[in-house]
Design a protein around this nucleic acid. Sequence first.
DNA 1: GTTGTCTGCCC
DNA 2: ATTCTGC
DNA 3: GCAGAATGGGCAGACAAC
Length: 529
Amino acid sequence: MLMMPPKLTIAKVFSEMKAIAHSAGKESQKAKKEKIQKLLVASRGEEAKFIVRMLQAKLRIGIQIPTLLQALAYAFTLTKPGKSCGPAAVTDRRHGQAKLSAAELEPQMIGMEAAVKQAFSEMPNFDKLVAALMEGRDGSSLLQVCSISVGVPVKPMLAKPSKGIAEVGERLSGKRFTGEWKYDGERAQIHVLSKDVIQIYSRNSENMTEKYPDVIEVVKQSLAEDVQSCIIDSELVAFDQVNRKILPFQVLTTRGRKNITVEDIKVNVCLFAFDCMLVNGQPLVKEPLELRREKLWSILSPAEGKVTFAVYRNFNEINEEEIQAFLDESIAGSCEGLMLKTLTENATYEPSKRSLNWLKLKKDYLEGMADSIDVVPIGAYYGKGKRSGAYGAYLLAIYDQENEEFQTVCKAGTGFSDEDLTTHYSFFKNHQRPCAETNYNVNDKLKPDVWLEPCQVWEIRAADLSISPVHTSAFGVKADGKGIGLRFPRFLRIRDDKTPEESTGSEQIVEMFEAQASVSGTAAVDDDF
DNA sequence: GTTGTCTGCCC
DNA sequence: ATTCTGC
DNA sequence: GCAGAATGGGCAGACAAC
């Protein structure tokens, strides 16, 4: 007789998941499959669904880290951990002797939430946060144990996209502010624990130290004598040391990531520093940018082509022409646009996306400055999650007159309102094809769930164009066996005034590719890819 | 040994 | 990364 | 305005398959 496996417990699922995560090497895929199979067989009711979602890291239950932090804050406000009696011993402040009124608890909960979120931003580590809370730390004392410290990556301060210079004006009017070039590289948070121990963390707090031994070396040499410790915020950008030129992001991504030695580095980088969160043990996050920048300049000296500071210009008041001119300069200088930050007022370093006090101004946000492209949807992919039952993304192509074929440039899955998604789905339901048209030039890897008749033109926007291993537009023109694809594509609108044959041509795609500052002027683009 | 596919991480 | 939407 | 959840191009590296 078949026996039902024992009921799953949280501890069991947790340990199995850890085992799956840590399994590596030959036959590891098989081992993982077997473990997952066992979990699914033992699951009952809805358990299987959530096990699968957990494995996909897409729980979709309306709760992510911010909500979890809020819950922690509320829990430790409403109940207090008991003294040395194990985790179950708590004092509930809603009932009994320790009872507080709702009016008394409310502000405490709000204050605690702010403290917990601040603590997690500065020390994003649940082990440490929960340990501090279990010690009975409250809003005021939590930051004493969970505050910015060298060796623990801080959640980097992020920027809010701005729609145009007018919006920038609204946000910054009446305040002194600065504009900085926004470099197209990899965010790097540099932790100097001592002159001999330097670590680099990514935007998502991954340790990249192993990837950048060259940067470690040059930072060591560029630090001022009296610096024992510091945390620097910066961007690492691929850099041509011979021609003193910034190289495209795509070049940076070809750098190796593991077991890197300085001798065999093929892609050199230049560090563009722009902020400093701690110097010699002293946190600076509560200080205004103007002072932090001053500190930064005092602890780091530039090294030609290796270390420098982000180009900036300070403004005492809004001047749209000057901002526009500075933006144009940044584009000409191979940058993505500008970062705009207050200098004195409201100018502290606010880790994480909790507060988006910085603004980013990129050319592709601006009407008229962006690469706007007319494309034809030729395929569609079934949507997932909240897009189940409709298409979640589309395969987009341009028309190549010479070869009389549709060549793909990108997929698009963003920019659609819910209404757009519905409209497109019902429209294309009646324009499906059983297989690709003979004049569709599509890589196998992009094969859509549904082929579409070429019957509509969409205007889309992109930030950049890149050499693509899968997209077929302008195939072979800029690199052998490769086409051109779009970076950050998004749907803008339907172009009812155009026929599919009038979509953007492949020559225009080539022109747009070549017009990019980080590409133009390169002696032989082909060699770079 | 080479090629193909998937994952995880950049943007 | 970008974008949209419910709260 | 925040939080959440859709979705993009493309690379190195790890495994699997041949």
